[in-house]
């Protein structure tokens, strides 16, 4: 990644912030990603185990009154997000199938850690009612105390863990 084909950090942040502001102005709500992923996985489980999922204390609300969980604001946002990143990488000549890894870890090792990190993050996002975007960025802009606690604790958790996984990254 050369410096020229990516934006300076502040400019990139302003672009992301403007997309969040647009959601405030148009929809009166924030942007988010993890909620859509939860709805996706609930839909998959519902297809396999409909009764169990509808009675689930957590997922049941998605199916109340025969609703389709994916018929939701966040799904439309996700379509746009995927298209935006896809167009960005293709126009930059950067789209390729690749396992991104540090210099000291094998491909298999990286994928195992990606899976473990995904499971932890998925659980944590549900516990915190949102992820970096829906809870952190949006709540941060709304001056939410919970969101700022979430953000600070992300950095605390990340810095506390960094030493143990250093061979993966540096």
């Amino acid at each position: 990644m050369s410096l020229r084909d990516r934006f300076p950090p502040v400019l990139a942040g302003v672009v992301i912030g403007l997309s969040m502001l647009a959601a405030f102005v148009v929809a009166g709500r924030g942007i988010g990603v993890s909620g859509m992923m939860t709805r996706l996985v609930a839909t998959v489980q519902h297809a396999l185990l409909p009764e169990l999922t509808e009675k689930s204390a957590y997922f049941g609300r998605y199916f109340a009154g025969g609703a389709n969980p994916l018929d939701d604001y966040l799904s439309y946002l996700m379509v746009g997000l995927l298209a935006g990143a896809f167009v960005g990488s293709v126009t930059a000549g950067d789209f390729r199938l690749e396992v991104q890894r540090g210099p000291r870890i094998s491909t298999g090792g990286r994928l195992v850690l990606a899976l473990i990190g995904g499971v932890i993050t998925g659980f944590a996002a549900r516990l915190a009612r949102g992820c970096t975007s829906g809870q952190g960025l949006v709540g941060g802009a709304e001056l939410s105390v919970g969101a700022w606690a979430f953000l600070l604790c992300i950095f605390a958790g990340g810095f506390a863990t960094a030493w143990f996984v250093r061979k993966q990254w540096i």
């Binding site: 990603v33 993890s34 992923m37 996700m78 997000l81 995927l82 935006g84 990143a85 991104q100 850690l113 990606a114 899976l115 473990i116 990190g117 995904g118 499971v119 932890i120 993050t121 998925g122 659980f123 944590a124 996002a125 549900r126 516990l127 915190a128 009612r129 992820c131 970096t132 975007s133 809870q135 919970g146 969101a147 606690a149 979430f150 953000l151 600070l152 604790c153 992300i154 950095f155 605390a156 958790g157 990340g158 810095f159 506390a160 863990t161 960094a162 996984v165 993966q168 990254w169």
Partner: peptide, 24 residues
């Protein structure tokens, strides 16, 4: 939310992504 954030940070350091960046 604080506990979730701490776990989330652990997951990010291990996995290298958060949901939005992973989807992108």
């Amino acid at each position: 939310m604080a506990v979730g954030g701490f776990l989330f940070g652990i997951g990010m350091a291990v996995g290298g992504f958060c949901p939005g960046t992973a989807a992108a």
